[in-house]
């Protein structure tokens, strides 16, 4: 997992409230394999980005050239609400985003983002509105997120402090995911497993036939 420290990038305003996980990853993509070069990038917000004829909606910010290469999305209330559809976080990742800044996020989605090395930042609604204004009036302008310092520096140089669970922050900054984190306990796991197998030798196993 790529460490997340300080990110300076173009940011895109997305002023649509309550975008749920079903809009982030439309159902028809849910049964699709994720392979390199064939991932969920296309699926991400697909029906907002494209019309019924599969033509890009030009009024949609993510389709505007000024916002291309944007790694930060400034979202509206309850982004990622709805069902627990875990693929939604993969769609964000595969689209090339690294951070979302918004007034609120769906609970499970929020956890899934961090699980995949993405940073969701929660800031008060008036700050978010101000960010939208900056990004709308000067499309393509960059903002900075400094995770170690826990601040967002907006396009006008103002700093906004945000909160984050310290354990989650540590994992993001070091770029270790849940498996890396667990395997830091590898010795304990191996010792536990060996002891358990010798004490409970009858615990069933299965074989591939």
């Amino acid at each position: 997992m790529e460490p997340f420290t300080r990110l300076t990038s173009v940011a895109t305003p997305l002023e649509v409230a309550k975008i749920d996980t079903g809009m982030i990853l439309p159902g028809r993509y849910m049964r699709r394999h994720r392979r390199p070069g064939h991932d969920y990038a296309e699926a991400f917000l697909h029906d907002l980005r494209f019309d019924e004829k599969e033509q890009p909606r030009l009024d949609f910010p993510l389709n505007q050239p000024a916002y291309s290469n944007s790694k930060i999305l400034v979202t509206d209330v309850d982004f990622g609400c709805g069902s627990s559809r875990e693929g939604a976080a993969y769609a964000v990742l595969d689209f090339g985003l690294r951070a979302l800044i918004g007034p609120s996020f769906g609970d499970i989605f929020f956890g899934n983002l961090m699980q995949n090395g993405l940073l969701p930042v929660v800031l008060p609604f008036d700050i978010i509105s101000d960010l939208w204004r900056q990004l709308r009036t000067r499309p393509g302008v960059e903002i900075t997120i400094d995770l170690p310092q826990q601040v967002v520096i907006d396009a006008e140089g103002k700093s906004h402090r945000f909160d984050i669970n310290p354990v989650r922050k540590d994992r993001l900054v070091r770029g270790i995911d849940d498996i890396d984190f667990t395997m830091q306990h590898q010795n304990e796991i191996l010792a536990f497993e060996a002891a358990r197998r010798s004490r409970f030798p009858w615990i069933p196993t299965a074989t591939r036939e």
Partner: peptide, 10 residues
Amino acid sequence: FLAFDQLRLE
């Protein structure tokens, strides 16, 4: 399959 895809990518 999502779990397997991710393990494969990693």
